[in-house]
């Protein structure tokens, strides 16, 4: 189960993967519906867009981007271990490499997303 502690990085990597996956799935459902409105009801789409461009909307986009990027990097880690089982010995090291890439790319990315809210 989700809350039973089974130890360190492996369990956290798994739990984050599952939670980020559910979050991205929920956004995809919303996003396909909002894009459908571009054809069906463009005025309604433009109104929804104002929410995306607001400060709370931008914070949620950073959360979405973070979930997407974590899920993508950890997914690569899973695939590497699935098709190259010897790498499983290094599963913790791979997870820390993921976090380095996540922060190096993610912090500038988050800044690009948030700065228009401060008029920059």
């Amino acid at each position: 189960m989700l809350l039973r502690y089974r130890g360190s990085e492996g369990m956290l990597a798994w739990a984050f993967h599952r939670i980020s996956g559910i979050g991205i799935w929920a956004f995809v459902v919303l996003h396909v519906i909002d894009i459908y409105l571009v054809g069906g009801n463009p005025e309604a789409y433009d109104e929804i867009l104002q929410i995306y461009a607001s400060l709370p909307g931008r914070i949620l986009e950073i959360v979405l981007g973070g979930a997407l990027f974590y899920h993508a990097l950890n997914g690569m880690r899973i695939i590497v271990m699935d098709f190259w089982p010897a790498m499983t010995v290094h599963h913790k090291r791979l997870w820390y490499i993921n976090w380095v890439i996540f922060l190096v790319v993610g912090i500038p990315g988050a800044w690009i997303i948030i700065k228009p809210a401060f008029g920059m």
Partner: peptide, 25 residues
């Protein structure tokens, strides 16, 4: 990994959500 990250980068780093009206699409 390629498609979703490219899509997100184009629509959040190259373009800004504030300009993505129905007309923009």
């Amino acid at each position: 990994f390629v498609l979703a990250l490219t899509h997100f980068s184009i629509l959040h780093f190259i373009f800004d959500p504030a300009e993505q009206t129905a007309e923009f699409i």
